[in-house]
């Protein structure tokens, strides 16, 4: 049951306009605007490609689609996409889980935080890209090194957000539960953790975007499969068309994954995402 106030409500509740006025539902309106935006992008792309630069450096849209069709049809793209996606997924899920668990503990156990925080503060400046060389030595160019790199990128972001969320669990809510009779464990599990869900979700969304960014360099530098490898291979062969297909794929993929994530949050976590303003 989803009972959280719908942010779109004010629009759908708007009074109906006169029958001669041009009206449109907010949904089809936003679809139309998104369509217009994409159309403008394609026109600009065509312009850049044929007028400003040249079709070899920036292949025109139709050329890219012509290249894409056989790549999609043969399953080549799909294979690379699924390999990259599995890597992102494994690293992201394990990184998020570890980040949430350790983040919650750091937020709750002062001593643990004081001991570990300086280390975390230093390590988090090592981006996954910076870790590629050592990851290859530790784990080879197989799947494990990709999992590790995505894990690395996800872990710190989720951890820091989770700890912040745990700290911000309203003290009144914890005290209210305490005098109702909740013990420390119940306060932790039933109050503090649910209160920090919005922060955890924010952390995970940021980490998801960062995973998408770090899987590419990882595959460019140290892989023999995946979207990043496709980019690398096409670059060596000066196949700008294929590079563009890969770039487009990354855009679409990131967009779809973020949408799925948001739908999941709306469906499953909606009740934890609402804030009650003060009266």
């Amino acid at each position: 049951m989803v009972n959280v106030p719908d942010s779109r409500a004010p629009f759908s509740a708007a009074p109906l306009r006169g029958k001669h006025t041009w009206t449109m539902s907010p949904v089809s309106r936003s679809v139309l605007l998104a369509g217009a935006s994409i159309l403008i992008a394609f026109v600009a792309w065509q312009f850049l490609s044929t007028v400003l630069f040249n079709p070899f450096l920036i292949p025109p849209p139709l050329e890219v689609f012509r290249t894409a069709i056989p790549m999609v049809a043969s399953g080549e793209i799909l294979a690379d996409v699924s390999i990259s996606m599995v890597r992102v997924l494994v690293g992201f899920v394990t990184g998020s889980l570890a980040g949430i668990i350790i983040g919650v503990l750091l937020g709750r156990i002062r001593l643990l935080h004081d001991v570990l925080d300086p280390i975390i503060e230093l390590l988090r400046y090592l981006s996954p890209t910076a870790m590629i060389p050592i990851a290859v030595i530790w784990f080879g160019i197989g799947e494990l090194s990709k999992y590790f790199l995505i894990f690395w990128g996800t872990f710190f972001i989720v951890l820091i957000n989770t700890t912040a969320g745990v700290w911000r669990a309203p003290i009144a809510r914890q005290r209210a539960a305490e005098c109702l009779g909740a013990n420390r464990f119940q306060i932790f599990m039933l109050i503090v953790v649910p209160s920090s869900v919005p922060y955890i979700v924010t952390g995970m969304r940021v980490a998801m975007a960062s995973s998408f960014m770090s899987i590419i360099p990882a595959e460019i530098l140290a892989a023999d499969s995946g979207i990043g490898y496709l980019l690398q291979k096409s670059s060596m062969l000066l196949q700008t068309n294929r590079i563009f297909v890969a770039l487009l794929t990354i855009c679409v993929l990131g967009f779809i994954v973020d949408r799925i994530f948001r739908i999941f949050v709306d469906k499953v976590l909606a009740r934890y995402m609402s804030f009650v303003s003060q009266t």
């Binding site: 309203p170 009144a172 809510r173 005290r175 209210a176 109050i191 649910p194 009740r271 934890y272 609402s274 804030f275 009650v276 303003s277 003060q278 009266t279």
Partner: peptide
């Protein structure tokens, strides 16, 4: 608002 549990 902060004393109640907004998810319940």
């Amino acid at each position: 608002g902060s004393a109640l549990l907004p998810w319940l």
